[in-house]
């Protein structure tokens, strides 16, 4: 009895402060990560993933493959502050911002209304000292997600587009693995929200509108350029094979395989702006690849996907061979087809 009275009282108090569904700014800035996702108050309704006031959903043109999981993304920028546009880079978000991403599998990909199975929600928090990344894994009841600093393995399954049951050993990354992808010059940084990668229509509750237009209107950002070269949706066959392949490689590989990325020692650079053939892998010999080379001589042999190490490592699911090194337990067969066709066409 006493517990519920305290609960009611605190609800009342929160109501008075008009903070019922507002994000808890102090939790974002706190030195320690909260133990549960709820403490941030990013969601009004955890299970339904209904965002709180000020938490705006967004999509990216080109996305990272994560074992066929689906992703929902939200951005939060504290009131009266804006993210600053910087050419070619991720928006420079103000202190107190958060990027939130939930990974889930639909129970049945053919009938999404059947519901979803939430795996984890990753948060990137812009603190005074810079960005910090951590993930929260959802409980079986899907009511709460708990911080998993050391990561977690979730064996799960879903029904795919063809009606087939698929299983996966899904890995929630540990805090260090977040950094493996999200590090630029050793500092944690977001990957997705670059202007060029947000430049698409989103179907908001009040209608479809370009995301950058919306962000500007809502004063999340200060500016975006009218002209920019955007990657394309690699699944959209109306674009050229080259654009689709380079867009896929950019978002899936280019965060590490870039001159400032964690894999820069390899000399293989797959970021969107790279144009040098050797650095892109054309007749490039492996450096410290070991058995990752699969007895092949070059990263890319034009016209010969079966002789290209790049494709070999996309196909493999052996941890000592496969690329990316983490975040993948399954092969991405649609992308293997795409990159295979791209190399064949050279």
């Amino acid at each position: 009895m006493q517990g519920s009275r305290v609960f009611l009282a605190s609800l009342l108090l929160l109501g008075i402060c008009n903070q019922l569904y507002a994000v808890n700014n102090s939790v974002i800035l706190a030195e320690e990560f909260p133990l549960t996702l709820s403490e941030f108050a990013f969601f009004e309704d955890n299970k339904a993933q209904t965002p709180s006031e000020g938490v705006l959903p967004y999509e990216l043109i080109s996305t990272l493959f994560s074992d066929y999981s689906y992703k929902q993304r939200w951005v939060y920028v504290p009131e009266r502050r804006k993210a600053i546009y910087e050419e070619g880079k991720v928006f420079n978000f103000p202190v107190g911002s958060a990027l939130i991403k939930t990974f889930y599998y639909p129970l049945d990909e053919r009938k999404q209304e059947k519901g979803m199975n939430l795996m984890e929600t990753r948060v990137l928090l812009r603190k005074e000292s810079g960005w910090e990344a951590v993930s929260y894994a959802w409980n079986n009841e899907q009511t709460e997600a708990k911080v998993k600093i050391a990561g977690k393995t979730i064996n799960t399954s879903w029904i795919d587009q063809s009606g087939k049951k698929r299983t996966v050993r899904y890995r929630v990354p540990n805090k260090n693995q977040c950094k493996e992808c999200h590090a630029t010059n050793d500092a944690i940084t977001p990957i997705g929200p670059k202007a060029r990668n947000l430049n698409k229509i989103y179907h908001y509750e009040d209608g479809p509108v370009n995301q950058l237009t919306k962000w500007l209107k809502q004063e999340i950002i200060n500016h975006y350029p009218q002209k920019m070269v955007s990657p394309v949706d690699w699944q959209d066959g109306s674009y050229s094979l080259d654009d689709r392949a380079r867009s896929y490689l950019d978002i899936n590989c280019g965060h590490c395989h870039a001159p400032t990325g964690a894999a820069n020692s390899t000399g293989l650079y797959l970021n969107f702006s790279e144009s040098r053939k050797k650095q892109l892998g054309f007749y490039k010999k492996p450096v410290a690849t070991g058995r990752g080379s699969g007895d092949l001589k070059y990263s890319i042999v034009p016209g010969k996907p079966e002789e290209s190490i790049l494709l070999h490592r996309m196909i493999s699911t052996d941890p000592g061979v496969m690329m990316p090194e983490s975040g993948r337990a399954l092969s991405h067969s649609e992308a293997i087809d795409l990159i295979g066709s791209w190399i064949s066409s050279m």
């Binding site: 010999k285 492996p286 690849t289 070991g290 058995r291 080379s293 699969g294 007895d295 092949l296 190490i309």
Partner: peptide, 14 residues
């Protein structure tokens, strides 16, 4: 001394 193991490196590596 006595380095006598057949090369077992996967091809492609120097």
């Amino acid at each position: 001394v006595d380095n006598d193991t057949d090369n077992f490196a996967p091809e492609g590596n120097i």
